[in-house]
């Protein structure tokens, strides 16, 4: 069953067509990897479907209901949560407080919210930073905080914007495991933007390749990375370079 459907969304910034007639579908329980060179429009697509920006045209459906033009909190309430590429913690709070708020916002009971948050924090491997203020946390920890906070709102669809960026390879494996778990144990559908090709190859059921705001191609990970157009779009940059 299609859980997220995007039909021809476009967005221009002062004449620059950042997203141009992009369409794709994501089946429930699947993982879609989104790749493309810097500036391809990946983050903008997230902003459009998560309600942070209003598309100039096109529509977004979540579980059969149209959510085009909904505000971000309405989109989250409808079951789709995003993370931010540049981490956006609640800076005056500790890691635990950050995640607790997300649990509460997701409708969690007040009495159990902190315990639930603490469990989630352990699960993403943030345990030893649990009571630390977010100011001054290393990038790796902030990335995982983004993830924990997004998962805390119990989404059906999770939009992840480069959650592996900034992690050393040893730190990536547990996060990738967690993402797989989220799909298998929690039934979460994932759309993730990633430059690290190893992760894209390992996790994705299918891959969407963007270039200059347009969909270049889409398909299974192996097919897509063999596509000469994809290699061209990376301008000679080997798409496997990060792996």
């Amino acid at each position: 069953m299609t859980l997220l459907r995007v039909d021809g969304i476009s967005k221009s910034f002062q004449g620059l067509r950042a997203v141009d007639e992009v369409s794709f579908e994501v089946a429930e329980g699947s993982i879609l990897g989104v790749i493309g060179p810097n500036g391809a429009g990946k983050t903008t697509i997230f902003n459009l479907i998560a309600g942070a920006l209003r598309p100039d045209s096109g529509r977004v459906h979540l579980a059969g209901r149209e959510i085009t033009g909904h505000t971000p909190h309405q989109v989250t309430a409808a079951g789709m949560t995003r993370t931010f590429q540049l981490m956006r913690p609640f800076y005056s709070m500790t890691v635990l407080e950050n995640v607790t708020i997300a649990v509460l916002a997701g409708g969690g009971a007040k009495r159990t919210a902190r315990t639930a948050a603490a469990e989630l924090i352990d699960r993403v491997g943030l345990g030893r930073w649990r009571d630390a203020p977010t100011e001054g946390l290393p990038t790796a920890a902030l990335k995982r905080l983004e993830l924990a906070r997004a998962v805390a709102s119990k989404p059906r669809v999770l939009l992840l914007d480069e959650v592996l960026a900034g992690l050393v390879p040893a730190e990536r494996a547990p996060v990738m495991e967690l993402l797989e778990q989220l799909r298998t144990d929690d039934g979460v559908t994932l759309v993730f933007v990633e430059h690290i090709m190893a992760a894209v190859m390992r996790l994705s059921d299918s891959v969407l390749v963007l270039d200059l705001g347009r969909v270049l191609t889409t398909g299974a990970p192996e097919e897509v990375t063999r596509d000469p157009r994809v290699i061209e779009a990376y301008l000679g940059e080997d798409p496997h370079a990060h792996a």
Partner: peptide, 26 residues
Amino acid sequence: MTSPADQGHVAAAGDVATLDPDEARA
């Protein structure tokens, strides 16, 4: 990997300084 502009900062899109299309063109 991350571009220098804070693209997560969508509020900037609604920023008063960039609201006006005229200003952007000229």
